[in-house]
Amino acid sequence: MESQNDREIAIRVEGLTKSFGDKVVVRNLSMTVKRGQIYGFLGPNGSGKTTTIRMLCGLLTPDSGQGTCLGYDILTEADRIKERVGYMTQRFSLYQDLSIRENLEFVARIYGLENPTQAARDAIERLGLKGRENQLASDLSGGWKQRLSLGACILPSPDLLLLDEPTAGVDPKARRDFWNEIHALAAEGLTVLVSTHYMDEAERCHEIAYLAYGELLTHGTVAEVIGRSGLETWTVTGPEPHDLALELESTPGVDMVAPFGTSLHVSGRDHPALDQALKGFKARKDLTWERSEPSLEDVFIDLMQRSRDNFVEAKP
């Protein structure tokens, strides 16, 4: 019997670990995603996002750990999971030598939809590809390929979407449309796990998780993640920001300096040390200082730096 609680949970995994050769790609990862949520998966390249997603849909077998996806055991019930999950791969993975219609009909048949031709026709209309249905997938631009992939994923009306960097290399307008669609789907009750590098996309998620070097470093809502970071951030404007950045970076107590247009974000974890460090700079007449919230990017870069330090130290 499923408990009420279980029915509200789309993904619950504990202690997932996966290595390739002697390289640990995902280390002891635990996470919970509630149904109907858009869950953002962030982290630098090679942090284990794709590997985690693949373990969730049965494409990879974890070395250790356990969990469920849509209530099915990820170790033993991959077949059931595949029927209810739409997985959009990072690289376009529909058939380039099939037309849009043929690709969609193929997917519809594999999932055993009752009327594949009609299902494909409806999807083409929904995607705004009417009139182009006989074009080969290879002839589509990046943005349209991405739309087609998403269309193919949601065609069998899955309960969970796993999207692996769906908007990489797609223009801003197409990105916005894409996210509007994702929100519309979530509003209908679909759960979406999406990996991305874009901070604006992270902010559009209900919850986010940050991975680096195979470890889940933080998770929660955007506000929670920023609040938990313990970073104090100042924005400074002044002449020669590049020289100023170099100068600030070499000052003990300053953990991170990042340029934002003509201004700099200066952050530190140790608040008294940061105040001490900035004292001299604040006295300068040509600089304007303002206390600000750390951005999500500040938080992530800080997390990544710290975890790299740990990672490097941990190595003999």
Partner: peptide, 14 residues
């Protein structure tokens, strides 16, 4: 080679 296997394997087909 074409990367379509990843999609295919994620679908319910044996």
């Amino acid at each position: 080679e074409r990367g379509t296997m990843e999609s295919l394997l994620s679908m319910p087909i044996d």
